[in-house]
Amino acid sequence: MNSKVELKSKDDHGHWYDNNIDPYKGLAEIIAITIKNSLISHKISFVDVPYRHKTKKSFMKKIEDKISEKAYTPESMTDLAGIRVITLIESDVQKVCDLIKTMFNVHDQDSVNKSEKLGEEKVGYRSVHFVCDVGDIREQLPEFSAYKEFCFEIQVRTALEHAWAEIEHDRGYKLGGKLPSHLNRRFKLLSGLLESADLEFNRLTVEIEEYSKQLNDSIQQDELDYELTTIGLKQLFQNKYKSLRLTGLELTDEIGKTLIDELNRFEIDTLSTLDTKIKQAISQYTFQENNTILGFCRDLMMIIDIHKYFENSFLGSKSWGVTNPETYAFLTKKYQEEEINAIFKKYEIIIVEDDE
């Protein structure tokens, strides 16, 4: 960082900004990229890692505000380069904070947890702010060596906290930073609702993880009295039916909902019922390998009762209208070709080679 010089006038401050802001632009970008890569490698979920350098207008205002309180120089400003880490849920905030402490040299005296400053009886802006430098180890790397004397600020918050901060900054400051009392009260009530939603999302995530673990343990013990869910379908095939050699065990929301709807219409509404049907079917027929969960379950329902599947479960061309020769050949193990052809014609099912 440049050595401190005495700045007396507004023009002096402006010139300092013009002559010194460029390195902070590069610093903000490289820190954001480094954090994002580290989050990915540590498998910590996040929404985004935006970055920015302080604008000249914001810089000038902060200098003027600080100088009115005490002696203050541009070098004292720790947020000329700013990075935000936006997470999905509250529990990920702590994971990010722990990671940041291992990556950079944190200036504890300048860092703050806004939630702790609010206390237990207030609601409002919540975020964790770190003031850092790159640290002794990282500053030895060529890409960081130019920034070894610079500070930067990292803010860590959830998506809901971020949304609230943006709304509060944009809407609140348009009235000079203070709203009329009756509007301010509603503003704070809304902040409390968002904080409650954040906590509930976090609790739900924990409970879903616990449910997934409990379900996994139950499947291992062949206790399958669970309603059909995408988590249950994935774990059933992943843990109990590896021999089917299915691919694409992940079920997107849309595909998962479609499949569960089709199974329910076919009167399969629990993992136990599905498990029984699978065991019965694979004892009689050899199913296609390298199929998906969706494809396998549709083959299963059709081989059990093709008429019932198309009358009750098939949702028309919006669901599917194309199949492959392997599925057709599989169905001939139970049905006559004339019967299959008649059904496929009625429901406008086309047979197409996979590579076409």
Results as ranks from 00 to 15, higher is better:
Ile349Pro: 05
Ile231Thr: 08
His107Gly: 07
Ser196Ile: 14
Val49Thr: 10
Leu194Ala: 12
Thr270Asp: 00
Ala197Asp: 07
Ser181Ile: 12
Ala71Thr: 15
Tyr17Asn: 00
Lys308Arg: 10
Gly82Tyr: 05
Leu300Ser: 03
Leu80Phe: 09
Lys4Asn: 09
Met1Leu: 13
Leu118Gln: 02
Trp164Tyr: 06
Asp217Lys: 11
His15Thr: 13
Ala159Val: 15
Asp79Trp: 05
Tyr335Ala: 02
Leu204Arg: 04
Gln221Arg: 12
Glu168Trp: 01
Ser111His: 07
Phe46Ser: 11
Thr258Gln: 11
Asp269Lys: 04
Gln235Asn: 14
Ser145Pro: 11
Ser191Trp: 03
Asn105Thr: 14
Asp355Leu: 02
Lys213Ser: 08
Pro325Lys: 04
Glu348Tyr: 08
Ala281Ile: 06
Lys54Asp: 03
Phe287His: 05
Ser218Asn: 11
Leu183Arg: 02
Thr205Met: 13
Ser317Ala: 11
Ala281Gly: 01
Ile35Pro: 08
Gly192Pro: 05
Ser111Asn: 07
Pro142Val: 15
Leu88Tyr: 15
Ser68Phe: 08
Phe46Ala: 10
Glu207Thr: 12
Glu223Gln: 11
Leu39Trp: 06
Tyr173Leu: 12
Val134Thr: 02
Val112Phe: 01
Ser58Asn: 09
Ile154Thr: 00
Glu289Pro: 06
Leu271Phe: 10
Ser76Thr: 08
Gly248Ile: 00
Glu339Ala: 10
Asp12Pro: 01
Phe150Asp: 12
